[in-house]
Design a protein around this nucleic acid. Structure first.
Lengths: 177, 177
DNA sequence: TGACCCATGTAAGGGGTTACATGATTTG
DNA sequence: CAAATCATGTAACCCCTTACATGGGTCA
């Protein structure tokens, strides 16, 4: 899909190592794109072989050496090409819904316990997104202007989680009946 | 993930062929689980080899022959086992958000056009979900009771799409500025 | 006449997860 | 003293997509 292009975008705004990127995925884009470190390293290797990235080795004393990756001109061209091309609407594969759909074959207690587990995760996610939003709102007008597009992706996360939680209330009410 | 178990659930409520299942995926579960016909046929083969499904060949005159699959006792046991086990919360990988996140490198017109394309898809999805909901509401009380869990998954689709559309309005407003 | 439905598959390749592998430093 | 962080990878496996392959029947 577009892990490749997510990496190009991150490195375009700031060069970094695989480990850096992995952390940025966990923090910045984590709420709409997930990546394991193994996959990040693999993609970096492939992107380098494709000529879209180059790297410099940085020796470190107390830490393992780092490779700092940055875009090549070809990488920059590729990024622009991808941005100009339509992206496929997301397909949804949600195992929780599969389970609910077939829930007649199990107990209500089991379904309630499952919902509770997911509820805890979604509440925590929403809290963390709201806290990022509060931070954003304290930034200067220029910083907010510079981050306005990433901020829209944050809003997507917030509205999405709120909708999930509203749905969970409907489910809880129905499972009580 | 759980295509396997989605198939077990569908066949548990009614035996059918690969083609039947493929259609049921497009209609019934389509808004939360997608599958291509190739993958359905492949999974059926694997589930049969694992001993969870058995099939009978039905010869047809004007149409190609069908294999009608149904659960074996081992398949039923496996389904119950899976339903009793926690499912992983969904991870989200949304290419549209990647594009928006990196949208500073492209034009506003391009972003608006992209949003419009997605808007059309989401509006159409919501319409079709709402029409399924209206059909549900005209059913008898017993039918509605029997379908109450699948109905909850439909509600998830509706609330999710409405949240998406509300977000799209925020994006449109921001891109106009 | 061309598009869509019925009906089933194989093959190649891409994308992702899990397990394995190493090893020093910092924090609680 | 244990867990987390820093730092980079390989290998096996699973899941999914795309392309290819076949061929009759129905509908506009």
């Amino acid at each position: 899909m577009s892990l490749k292009h997510a990496i190009l975008i991150l490195l375009e705004s700031e060069p970094g190592s695989g480990y850096d990127l992995f952390k940025r995925f966990k923090e910045g884009l984590g709420y709409f794109w997930n990546a394991k470190h193994q996959q990040v390293y693999l993609e970096l290797k492939k992107l380098n072989e494709a000529g879209w990235l180059e790297f410099e080795e940085h020796a470190q004393e107390t830490r393992p050496d780092k490779k700092i990756y940055r875009l090549t001109p070809a990488g920059h061209t590729e990024l622009l090409r991808w941005l100009g091309e339509p992206v496929q609407p997301n397909k949804i594969n949600d195992a929780l819904l599969v389970k609910l759909f077939g829930g007649a074959h199990t107990s209500l207690d089991n379904l309630r316990a499952e919902m509770d587990r997911h509820l805890a995760v979604h509440r925590k996610t929403l809290d963390s997104l709201l806290s990022i939003e509060r931070d954003y709102q304290t930034l200067s007008a220029e910083r907010r202007q510079a981050l306005r597009l990433p901020y829209l992706t944050l809003r997507r996360g917030i509205l999405g989680e709120q909708a999930w939680l509203a749905w969970a209330e409907e489910v809880a009410a129905e499972l009580e009946r």
